[in-house]
Design a protein around this nucleic acid. Structure first.
Lengths: 344, 344
DNA sequence: ATCCCACGTGACAGCGCTGTCACGACAGTC
DNA sequence: GACTGTCGTGACAGCGCTGTCACGTGGGAT
């Protein structure tokens, strides 16, 4: 900065003022400084600036993985938004429980960011409390946190729509397949289960725990045993609601390999409206992670700039049912459900 | 830090030494300081530290999007690796040309990171030159940069394998479908085209530009016209090699909707071994973005710590052909290829 | 007993900025 | 013509650390 000042024939103070866009700089001086800065390829050191201002110019996000449609979409809209606001995006990837514990133990984001966006974890009260004295706004994304700023999709309502759709098609035995990651169930898992149960209850159908089977899209063995479990029930389901599209697609693939046609013998519906849903003609419930990323980012920027802002407002996003080709009216019961026993 | 020093009854210097793990601290003092730090929830300010050391503790990555299987996988392995090394991950998302120009104009990473990983762009010589005087190691990932550290998969060899596989199945008219993003063609697009051409040439088959049609997985209209273009040739292809699995899957979906069975009437092979390939039983060429992320990260850490390290070594990763159910021997020619005209 | 050296610790300057205050120049007011 | 206020600029301290140097202590070699 001293170099720029010398080149432009002004004091470092003036250079600082110019580069920060303060109004108290005369047009001629401003032009001179800007040109000098350009010629020297000068960029302000965030570190030094933040030491004085206490602001880091960084927004941190805490995510369980980046390898998912949801995170990818959300962060792809968040990133450019932050850049436009002159802020950097710092990502903490917490792939497993060990890392999760370490993160909350050490809280490395402390003093190294102006705000933290926590994505899609189902945090314990202790963890939430820990974040409370982080000394920066913390925004909970894809989860509800009582009394704290949250942005999430209305999972209950979405699951309600999916399940009602199956009910309206005449299905009575409807399975629900939640999924779990290395860091445990997500907030959405719980909420979607709730919506599923609510729909059944309002239709007067008793809940049956045997119809709720946890599976993971990337665990072929678990998929097969999970589906086998459902097909070997005395009254197997005629429809399945998968917590995520990717799981729904994996389920369909597994079903088809065992000769069970979708939707003829089994209706399947997902949740997300992932790109893959289109290629599979999968019925699903659409949500918009892009919107979620954008809204969360805007909220973060607002809370950073305006410390007096309301820190308890929640933003809840809508869902839409997207009926496609994997859900169909319940077929008249067939005598032989025994194919379940012939799984590979 | 002064608070911690006071609480532990030592000088700030000693606290600093302790927290940085320097060996010249007695065990008793170390224990006292560590406890004091824990009790006060103290975390070192990276900003202040970096002001003195000149190191930011940050590794920056430049990516065209986060919303892709490749980026997600690569960064999911890179993130924890950096965390384990005590470094932060800073992401610059450059979704379009405007942002791209702005990035290279302003180079916001300057002084705000210790190394930069550039993912999957096909940079111009000017852009590369600009990065050269960024004052930090720059690692080119998923692309080859002459005389600069690069980590990439052997796209040419992979494409060669895919095309040879189709040739070995008896196909002679083989189409290639490259794909393009908002920031232009990637390095891989070019390389895979090269491998495709090389395989045809070594089989003595003349290249036909009409068989190379650019498409995008998320552009349904473009897909249909692109495929229509191929099917309306005097000699339509009997096999198609798609630059990416996602595109291959979209192509298969489009073909099936027009009544063209895969692989009976048309063999399709992709590239990536994306998760979706399994669900579609898609033949493909596997690469490992996870390995790429890890190797690139390790390389970055090495170049940061050891400025004398060899900055010109390239790491080239292997590929494997994964034959599945979407490639089959060429059918005996059928008289009626006219269905191409009946596209919706 | 004397010297030397290794070891653990404290004092202090300074990294590159920003916020505050002071100052001079100039225009407007009575 | 003296006073007041506004505007643009410079001087300077200090943000929270780290690197360097100096210092005191104790054990081993001579």
């Amino acid at each position: 900065m001293a170099d720029v000042a010398e080149r432009a024939g002004v004091s470092p103070s003036t250079v600082s003022r110019t580069l920060r866009g303060l109004p108290t700089v005369s047009p001629e001086v401003r032009a001179r400084v800007e040109q000098a800065a350009r010629e020297l390829n000068f960029a302000v050191s965030r570190q030094a600036a933040s030491l004085v201002t206490g602001k880091t110019g960084v927004v941190a996000v805490l995510v369980p993985t980046l390898n998912s449609w949801f995170m990818g979409s959300a962060l792809s809209s968040l990133g450019p938004l932050l850049r436009a606001a002159g802020r950097e995006l710092n990502v903490y990837v917490i792939p497993d429980m060990t890392e999760r514990i370490a993160f909350f133990e050490r809280l490395p984001a402390r003093r190294n960011a102006d705000a933290l966006l926590v994505f899609g974890f189902d945090l314990t009260t202790e963890e939430t409390a820990r974040l409370d004295d982080l000394g920066m706004p913390v925004i909970y994304v894809s989860q509800h946190a009582e009394g704290r700023p949250s942005v999430y999709v209305d999972d209950v309502a979405g699951a309600l729509k999916a399940t009602r759709h199956l009910l309206n098609l005449g299905h009575r035995r409807i399975a629900f397949a939640p999924t779990t990651g290395a860091t445990g169930f997500s907030f959405s898992s719980r909420e979607r289960l709730l919506g599923y149960q609510q729909a059944l209850t309002e239709a007067g159908i008793p809940l049956d725990d045997e119809l709720v089977v946890t599976m993971a899209a990337d665990d072929t063995r678990g998929l097969i045993t999970g589906i086998g479990q459902l097909l070997s029930l005395r009254e197997p389901p005629t429809a399945l609601f998968a917590e995520q599209d990717e799981l729904a697609v994996a389920v369909i693939h597994t079903l088809r390999r065992t000769g069970i046609q979708v939707p003829d013998r089994m209706s399947v519906i997902g949740f997300d409206d992932h790109q893959v849903a289109q290629w599979f003609d999968l019925s699903t419930v659409a949500q918009s992670p892009t919107d979620m990323g954008r809204l969360a980012g805007e909220l973060a920027l607002r809370l950073i700039d305006d410390t007096a802002a309301d820190h308890t407002r929640h933003i809840i996003l809508p869902t839409q049912l997207i009926p496609r080709a994997t859900t169909a009216p319940r077929a008249t019961p067939q005598p032989d459900e025994g194919t379940a026993e012939t799984l590979p």
